[in-house]
Design a protein around this nucleic acid. Structure first.
Lengths: 225, 225
DNA sequence: TGATTTTCATACTGTTCCGCATAATATAAA
DNA sequence: TTTATATTATGCGGAACAGTATGAAAATCA
């Protein structure tokens, strides 16, 4: 009695995002897709091609869901885009949060953060996909208040996280007493932005790493190596 | 008997960029548009909406040229996009080149460069238009080699110009002997990129100026104020 | 079993898209 | 004038687009 329809939902992937807890015995025909997986595919597409250049047919093909199912599960194209972006942000946050929290020497901390960022930006079968925020969301942000709010929140989140790192480093005496954590944080964010953009234009990883290294040198003080 | 057609050959293609002096006496029905003006309008549209979201009807309406004329003058949509981008780059270069050359103190020089950049990114009736490179060209760069080459060249151009500034400043003793012009140049470019992106998300000018000021402080050494 | 519910699969609607074919129009040359 | 040339203006054609209507399929419940 281990059969297929025993308890499909609660276990496997985690529909926790939408369905609060368990889904005990749904009533009708079972879904042929996993919402989380499908959203991941949609995210990849939007990130690669942007909003306008990604058609619902493309999304349908990539997710394996036909268009009516897409609408049923995620709403129209814009809603799907926004949910994809939320998912991207959640993934990125999950990949970074531990490093931001770890009590490492500031230099090491920055190195790890930027390394993870590079991993994210350079991944992709058909070339580097860059950063969702920088590549497409920022463009949509001018005209769409909801997307704009998310983008600004993303910037602020990074600024704040970096500022926390520099503040603590300063407390621990790793930085000069004249160092301004706020300013350094904005420089760190700027470094994130510049590697995101350059990655998209296929700048080789080595070169991006050199940029990161240079930026870290300046931020933590080249002398303090 | 040189005439036969006056002197078409020399000026057949473009009666001078600004349609200045001569009247070449073109043969057929006169154009109802000025190519340079039309290209400027197209550039605005592409910059605002990106490649995919800008339709030929939009371009036709904005330029006042109907579609066949657009094709005749600029080629297909992609060609028009590339020409728009070239024009953007030329405009930006023209706006910056004098400042990059002027022998001002490094701090002043940087201030002026970033001020011009902000003017470019924040202009626009329907909200800030951001930077063409960062907003749309970088996205297209993954898949389109020609656009990618232009984008990379643009990055390199900025890096080099900034590096020149820092090199000279170092020679003049404005910077610490340990300063690395290359690294500082990449930081300056990163600052350009971060304000371009943030501008697109409607970050207020004051805030962008604060970011610029902080970055300059770090780059030229806050102490040397 | 049969009724109910939920999803899948197909196909349709009306619009918009890009690129071009055709014809009308306005100038210079003969 | 007439002819040649270069542009404008109209609009077609096939494809792609977003979103939806309709009915078949697959599960649970009675």
């Amino acid at each position: 009695m281990v059969q297929k329809t025993g308890k499909p939902a609660a276990s496997a992937k985690s529909p926790s995002v939408t369905a609060g807890a368990d889904a005990p015995k749904r009533r009708g025909r079972p879904r042929a897709y996993q919402p989380e997986v499908a959203l991941g595919k949609a995210l990849d597409l939007f990130r690669k091609d942007g909003f306008a250049a990604t058609s619902l047919d493309d999304l349908s093909a990539a997710t394996g869901m036909n268009r009516p199912s897409l609408y049923g599960a995620f709403g129209d194209k814009r809603e799907l885009y926004i949910k994809s972006y939320q998912r991207y942000r959640a993934d990125a946050r999950a990949a970074m949060i531990d490093i931001f929290r770890d009590e490492l020497p500031i230099r090491k901390r920055l190195e790890r953060i930027f390394a993870v960022a590079l991993d994210i930006y350079l991944s992709g079968d058909a070339g580097p996909r860059g950063c969702f925020t920088v590549m497409t969301a920022a463009s949509e942000a001018v005209a769409d208040p909801e997307i704009r709010a998310m983008v600004l929140e993303g910037f602020a989140e990074f600024d704040k996280a970096f500022a926390g790192c520099f503040s603590r480093a300063k407390e621990k005496g790793e930085l000069a007493s004249t160092a301004d954590p706020q300013v350094l944080a904005q420089l760190a964010s700027a470094t994130i932005h510049t590697i995101a953009i350059r990655a998209r234009a296929r700048t080789p990883r080595k070169q991006l790493e050199a940029i990161v290294k240079g930026a870290i040198d300046v931020m933590v003080g080249a002398a303090s190596t």
